[in-house]
């Protein structure tokens, strides 16, 4: 059984259809990525999984349970963590308070102190800045905090939406290395990245999304060799 299965979802913003019969699966312990151009619907997929959007038809199955109409906070309690695009921190809470806000659920509060230690060893800079307001952090630090907040949730699946967006090249590599490290530690990751080459290199499985439809799928390596993918996304 797959950890997560999205089955033929159609999602609308008002009258405009954003996703057309999108289906894919995420297996436990893998990195799965969704790549595609801006506006292809990658963020919409993530929002559908975390419950910010409800599909008109189709279903979202998590650990064998249909969660299509479940409220977002209930999904977090089940272990679905969505680190949204643009970080979406609480700017006038401190770093510590941002992490504490993420420890609101019963699931996350259990062993919060211990997990905090793990998180701080992963991101030493956050420990240094723990009493600083999140809004005053640099872009890279903000992204680390956003991911850290996701880890506080004790996720079964960690969904990262454009984690490297707007970061300097060195930081992009750092974040991507981190994603690989998280996988090695046993996390399951669903990744949306504009940096297609790097994303595919990391991924066990990948899906190409074009104007709301999945047009190609395969392992990361397969898609890296695919002529269409090369032409459209890799500039080769």
């Amino acid at each position: 059984m797959s950890l997560l299965e999205v089955r033929g979802v159609d999602v609308f913003y008002g009258d405009a259809q954003a996703l057309w019969g999108v289906s894919f699966t995420v297996e436990r312990g893998t990195i799965t990525s969704v790549v595609g151009a801006n506006g292809a619907g990658k963020t919409t997929i993530m929002k559908t999984i975390s419950g910010l959007l409800i599909p008109k038809s189709g279903s979202v199955i998590f650990e064998g349970r249909d969660i299509t109409r479940e409220e977002p906070h209930r999904r977090v309690e089940m272990g679905i963590a969505h680190v949204p695009e643009g970080r979406q921190l609480f700017p006038r809470l401190t770093v510590m308070e941002n992490l504490k806000a993420a420890a609101y659920t019963k699931r996350a509060r259990e062993g919060f102190e211990d997990r905090l230690e793990e998180i701080f060893s992963l991101f030493p800079i956050l420990r240094e800045r723990r009493n600083q307001l999140a809004g005053t952090l640099s872009g890279g630090e903000q992204q680390m905090l956003a991911i850290a907040r996701g880890l506080v949730l004790r996720p079964e699946i960690l969904m990262l939406d454009e984690p490297s967006l707007g970061l300097a090249p060195k930081l992009v590599l750092m974040i991507l290395r981190l994603v690989r490290k998280l996988k090695e530690e046993g996390y399951t990751i669903l990744l949306v990245e504009q940096n297609v080459y790097q994303a595919l290199k990391l991924s066990d499985m990948a899906y190409v999304l074009e104007t709301g439809r999945i047009v190609k799928s395969g392992t990361g390596e397969e898609l890296l060799r695919d002529e269409g993918v090369k032409r459209a996304y890799l500039g080769l």
């Binding site: 910010l52 977002p72 949204p84 979406q88 700017p91 806000a101 949730l153």
Partner: peptide, 24 residues
């Protein structure tokens, strides 16, 4: 308190609060 911090979080970013599992 966890609840107090969550309340302040909700006031600053409702969407992010949902994603943190807070029952807004």
């Amino acid at each position: 308190t966890y609840t107090g911090v969550a309340l302040r979080a909700v006031s600053q970013n409702r969407m992010a609060a949902y994603l943190m599992g807070i029952n807004v």
